[in-house]
């Protein structure tokens, strides 16, 4: 869909969704940044399910853990900022989906793995990570940043040019 064909209501809805997800990512990133000696080690060590070995390995390996910590802190922060401001939001949405898929795979919501015991609600197949991934995918397919974000200024100034003519 051409973004210029969005109705006003559609643009507002997509922008609100983008800002809310951006807010969430940004705060998650910053709180990790400000927490002294924050590490993803215990989260990775506690991973369950078919991919748990990979996550456990990451927790045990010094350099892999360092990479995971850096990607978490800066990944979350930058994705959050990107969504918030609508700056380079296309690649950051993909990055966000990848990051969320890692969280999903570390604690897949299937009763066999006992993951529901860790969280406050009850989930089967679908959990909040998956819903947020889906929301990011919707934003990827229906971008709003080239209307209500900084991407507007770097996407060739098409709208200005058209208005000027």
């Amino acid at each position: 869909m051409n973004t210029l064909n969005y109705s006003k209501g559609q643009i507002i809805s997509l922008t609100i969704l983008r800002i809310l997800i951006g807010w969430h990512f940004l705060y998650e990133g910053l709180i990790k940044f400000y927490t002294p000696n924050w590490t993803s080690k215990s989260y990775l060590s506690g991973a369950v399910g078919p991919f748990s070995t990979i996550f456990h390995q990451m927790a045990e390996s010094g350099w892999q853990l360092k990479v995971a910590d850096t990607l978490n802190i800066w990944g979350l922060t930058l994705i959050g900022l990107s969504l918030f401001t609508g700056f380079l939001s296309k690649p950051f949405k993909i990055f966000g989906i990848i990051l969320l898929s890692m969280y999903y795979l570390a604690y897949p919501p299937f009763a066999d793995f006992g993951v529901n015991a860790y969280v406050e609600g009850s989930y089967w197949v679908v959990n909040k990570n998956l819903v947020e991934m889906a929301a990011l995918f919707v934003l990827f397919m229906f971008p709003s940043s080239n209307v209500t974000g900084i991407d507007r200024y770097i996407s060739g100034f098409n709208c200005f040019k058209r208005n000027k003519n």
Binding site: T15, R18, I19, G22, W23, F84, T85, G86, V147, T148, G149, I150, D151, R152, Y153, C159, F160, N163, K164
Partner: peptide
């Protein structure tokens, strides 16, 4: 042009 420019900064107050 001014209105278009401001649209790109919609998220800034948030």
């Amino acid at each position: 042009f001014r209105r278009d420019f401001l649209k790109g900064l919609t998220a800034l107050p948030f």
